[in-house]
Design a protein around this nucleic acid. Sequence first.
DNA 1: GCTAAAGAGCGTAGCTCATACGCAGTTGTG
DNA 2: CACAACTGCGTATGAGCTACGCTCTTTAGC
Lengths: 248, 248
Amino acid sequence: MTEENGLPAEIALLWGLRETPRRGRKPSLTIGEITRAAIEVADAEGLGAVSMARVAQQLGNSTMALYRHVKSKDELLKLMADAAMEDPPPMPATGGWRAGLTLWANSVLLTFRRHPWCARIPLTGPPLGPKNLAWFDSALGTLADTPLSESEKVGVVMGLLTFVHGEIRLTAELAESFQENPEAFGPSYARALRLLVDPRKLPALGRVVDAGVFDQPNLYDEGDVDADFAFGLGLYLDGVAAYLAGRA
Amino acid sequence: MTEENGLPAEIALLWGLRETPRRGRKPSLTIGEITRAAIEVADAEGLGAVSMARVAQQLGNSTMALYRHVKSKDELLKLMADAAMEDPPPMPATGGWRAGLTLWANSVLLTFRRHPWCARIPLTGPPLGPKNLAWFDSALGTLADTPLSESEKVGVVMGLLTFVHGEIRLTAELAESFQENPEAFGPSYARALRLLVDPRKLPALGRVVDAGVFDQPNLYDEGDVDADFAFGLGLYLDGVAAYLAGRA
DNA sequence: GCTAAAGAGCGTAGCTCATACGCAGTTGTG
DNA sequence: CACAACTGCGTATGAGCTACGCTCTTTAGC
C-alpha cells in the first residue's frame, strides 16, 4: 500500500523495495531479521510453534513491535516461505537437460527437507518471490539447448515442479508424523492392513499385502523414500525424452 | 483406546469398529453425522470456518457434545479427509493399464476438486482409511495384467499419486486464492515479472517473459490447468510405458 | 420395580493466539 | 525549537480448543 509501482505489498517487501523513512526513530528490527528468526523457530520447533509472541521473544522484542514491519502473520509466513528457499545451485553447463533437471529436482527436494514446514504454507498466487523466481529460472535454463518452445519449457518445468511438490507434501508431512509416532510405520501397519483388507472387496491390494510388500521394519525409511522419488522422477524424465524424440 | 484389536482409535472410528455401549443415554449424534456436517461446512465456507462451535451449530447441538464422539479437532479432520474421498469409480475392464490409470488420476483430481480443503489436512501415517484403501486398490487393479511385481506396482502407483497430490496441492490452493484475489492471475502478473526479472540474472526466465508466455488474461484458467495436468500425466505414463517395454 | 453404574449433553472457565488501538519515546526537518 | 513522522510496546478484545464436572437418561442386575 505504501508502494506506487503496482506490486502487492508483500512482494515489495520480498524484493527489499521500500522507500526508507527519513524521519522518526531508527528501527531496531529489520524484516530480514524477523524472517530469519521466524525460520529459526520453525526449523527448531515446527511451524506450529511459530507465533508472533514466540518470534518476538526470539528477537528480544515485544510481540506488537513486529506489526510495525509486517502487516499480519500470514504475510510473515509468505516471507518465510520465499526466504527459506535459499539459492539454487549452479547448473552444470555440460551433461544436457536430463542431468540438469535431475540435479534441479533433487536440489529442490533437499532444500525443502531442510525446512519441511515450507510445504504447509499455502500459496497465494503465481511465483513472485526472488528465490522462487531464481529456482524457476534455473530449471528453465537447463532446457535452453532443447528445441522446445518457451511455452513448452514452462509446461515441462511446471509438470516437474508438480511432481516434486507432491513428493514434498507427502514426505514432509510423513516425516513429521514419523517423529511423533514411529510405530505407525512399522510392522503394525502390515498387521492393520491384514486385519482391514477384505480380499474380496480389495483384491489388488490384498495381493500386494499377501506378497509382503509392506512387511518392512520401517516403511518410512529415508533410503526407500529417496529411491521411490528417483524412480518416479526417472519415469517423468523418460516421458520428457520421448516427447523430445517425437518432436525432432 | 477403547479398542483391543491394536488399531489406533481414529482408524477404528473410520471403519465403524466400536463396541456399541449397552447402557446409558442414547446418543443423539453419530460420528457419521458429525463428519458429514463438518464436510458441509468446509465445502461451503472453507476449512478455516470449521470450528468445533460451527460444526456443533450446524447440527443444532452444543460445542462440547462433539467431544463425546471425537477425541479432538485433529481427529475430526482425519475423519473428514477420508470420508470426503467418496468411492472410486469402477475401472473399465478393457483398455489396458494406461486408460485405467488415466481415468483413475482424473477421478482423484475431480474428487479433490470437489473438496479442495482436503489437500490442507496433514497426513499422519500411511493410508488406512476405508476410502483411501479403496482408491489404492483401484489403482493397483489397473496394473493387474502387467508383468510388474507387486512391489513395482506400488512404486508406479505411488509415483502417480505423488504427481496427482502435487497437482492438487498447487491447484487447490491457487483456486482458493484466485477466488479472493483474481487480479494476481491477470495481466498484472506479467507486468510484475517484467519489472522484477533482470535478464542478466535470470536469463532463461527473461526469455520466457519476453516470449509473452505469461501475457494471458487469466493464468488460472480451468482449461489451461487441466491441459497442464494432462500434459504432465502423459509424460509420466510415457515413462511407465517405457519401463514396461524395457522389462519385456 | 428399584438401584446404581455407565454414558450422553452441555455450561463454565482457562489457556493460547492474533491483532486493533493508543500512548510514549525518538529522530529528522523546517 | 517545535512539529511531524515513525518506532516500540502495553492493554484489551475476541476467537478458538478443550479440561472439568454437573445433570439427566438408560439399562443391567437384583
